[in-house]
Simulated scan of single mutants.
Amino acid sequence: MAILADQNTRLLVQGITGREGAFHTRRMLGSGTRVVAGVTPGKGGQSFEGVPVFDTVSRAVRETGANTSIIFVPAPFAADAIYEALDAGIEAVCCITEGVPVHDMMKVTDYLKLRGATLIGPNCPGIFSPGKANVSIMPADIFSPGGVGVVSRSGTLTYQIVNELTQIGLGQSTAVGIGGDPIIGTDFIEVLRKFEADPETECVVMIGEIGGNAEQRAAEYISSEMETPVVAYIAGFTAPEGKTMGHAGAIVSGGETTAQAKSEALRRAGIRAAENPSEVARLVAEALGREP
């Protein structure tokens, strides 16, 4: 099985005719995803790579039955694109856009609770379920179908670790990049809960970063609620205190926000925590009782 995106995904691309939207739509189509509609205001009635383009999300949903959206629109308009998708009844929204204002996301997350939908991102690589659906900007050739779930704050580390899992014969059920911003639509615990409920996910890799306490909260959830083994890696062991590192949410303020403190919290909860990303695949193999 898979979570959030699978063979039943009917994908709508918001911003399909823009540079990024067009590029990644071609890649998603190339990996077998059912892209059923695109939306670019003012370009309704056109088509892109055989995909019909609509002026509004609501009309696209009515005419194509789209149930999932991926957003490639500029940051000042991203929140409006999310609202439009939620109001049209889209069940899962993935916002790739980087630089969405924090105040916009505060309002979006409040609205999200009213709609009962799932938002992945913003500032994320998306969702990839190998052999089923690609709702992402992730490179398809590093993935293979299997039983390892991946949830991550870091896009680049996701690619490295997925590639190393694939190289030793450990395929993935779904990889979910939740995003590195301070305010995001879905946190570690929500994704971990979905993996725990998925009978075909045998192990989960959690990739965290410095800043905040999301990893510590996830550790508490894992130790009390999960039977599926979890392997973790926290990026930023050498990050200087008080400096933002790459993501807006990755800033060390000392204490429990450091990579070392987070890794220790994970180990206290009985979770295998790697010291560097290249250890992760081996630890997953150990957790599954397989030769790396």
Rank of each mutant, 00 (worst) to 15 (best):
E49G: 10
I210N: 00
M245W: 03
S69D: 07
E209D: 06
F23G: 03
Q260T: 06
A175T: 03
T158D: 09
K107D: 15
A22F: 15
T9A: 03
G255V: 01
L266T: 08
V162L: 07
R193T: 15
Y159R: 02
V61R: 10
H24L: 09
R290M: 10
V284W: 06
T258K: 00
D80E: 15
V93K: 02
A78R: 02
P41T: 12
S136P: 07
I178F: 03
E264D: 10
I90S: 00
I120F: 08
H247K: 07
T56D: 11
A66F: 09
G179Y: 06
E63V: 03
E291S: 13
K194R: 15
G42F: 03
T201V: 11
T238V: 14
I271A: 07
V230M: 04
I271C: 09
P292R: 08
E215W: 02
G149M: 02
K43A: 09
I16M: 13
H24T: 09
V51F: 05
T9W: 07
R193A: 14
L170K: 01
G289A: 08
T238D: 14
C94D: 05
R290Y: 04
P41I: 14
T56G: 12
I222T: 04
I16R: 06
E196V: 06
G131N: 13
P229M: 13
P122G: 10
R27M: 12
A265W: 03
Y111D: 04
F195W: 07
K132N: 02
E275I: 01
V191G: 08
F237A: 02
I178L: 05
V57H: 05
E227Q: 13
D87S: 12
N123S: 15
H103G: 03
K262L: 01
S47P: 05
I183K: 11
L112S: 12
P130M: 07
M106V: 15
P139Y: 12
L157V: 08
R26S: 11
P101V: 13
L288P: 02
A219F: 02
Q14T: 09
A287E: 14
V150P: 03
A218N: 05
R290G: 04
Y159D: 06
M226I: 15
E275P: 00
I184D: 01
A273H: 02
A37L: 11
K107L: 14
A175C: 08
D104M: 11
Y233S: 00
D104W: 01
D110I: 13
V284S: 04
M206P: 00
P229W: 13
G99V: 12
M245L: 11
G32Y: 09
A92C: 12
E190D: 15
A2L: 03
I161T: 11
P76H: 12
M138W: 02
A88L: 03
P41W: 14
I71H: 04
G32W: 09
S154K: 01
A281Q: 08
T166L: 00
N123Q: 07
E215N: 07
R272L: 10
Q14P: 10
G155D: 01
A22Y: 14
A88V: 02
D141C: 01
V150G: 08
V231M: 04
E63Y: 08
T25D: 06
Y221K: 00
L157D: 01
S223C: 09
F195I: 09
F188Y: 14
